[in-house]
Amino acid sequence: MTASTEAVITTYGANESEQAFDVVRAIYSEVYAEPPYLEGPADFDDFGQSLPRRAAAPGFRLVVARVGTEAVGFALGHELGARTRWWDGALARLPEDVTSEWPGRTFAVIELAVRKPWRRRGYATQLHAHLVAGLGVVRLTLLVRPDAEPAHRAYEAWGYERVGQVQPFDDGPIYDAMLRPLVPRRSGVP
Rank of each mutant, 00 (worst) to 15 (best):
T2F: 13
A3K: 14
S4P: 13
A7E: 11
V8E: 15
T11G: 04
G13S: 13
A14E: 14
A14V: 03
N15T: 14
E16S: 14
E16H: 11
S17E: 06
S17D: 10
Q19Y: 11
Q19T: 14
A20R: 02
V23N: 02
V24I: 01
V24L: 00
V31A: 01
V31I: 01
A33M: 04
P35Y: 05
P36F: 10
Y37F: 15
Y37H: 12
L38Q: 10
L38G: 03
D43R: 00
F47I: 00
L51P: 01
A55S: 12
A57M: 13
L62Y: 07
V64N: 04
V67E: 13
V67S: 03
G68P: 09
A71C: 04
G77W: 09
G77P: 10
G81F: 13
R85Y: 15
W87A: 07
L94K: 05
V98D: 07
V98Y: 14
T99M: 10
R105A: 05
V114A: 03
K116R: 15
K116Q: 15
K116E: 14
R119H: 07
R120H: 14
G122M: 07
G122H: 10
Y123K: 01
T125R: 15
L127W: 08
H130I: 04
A133Q: 15
A133K: 15
L140G: 06
T141L: 09
T141W: 11
L142I: 01
R145K: 14
P146F: 12
A148K: 08
Y155W: 15
Y155P: 08
E156F: 09
E156A: 12
W158E: 11
W158A: 01
Y160K: 03
V163M: 11
V166N: 06
P168E: 10
D171H: 13
D171I: 01
D171E: 11
D171F: 05
Y175M: 01
D176L: 10
A177F: 13
L179S: 02
L179C: 03
P184S: 07
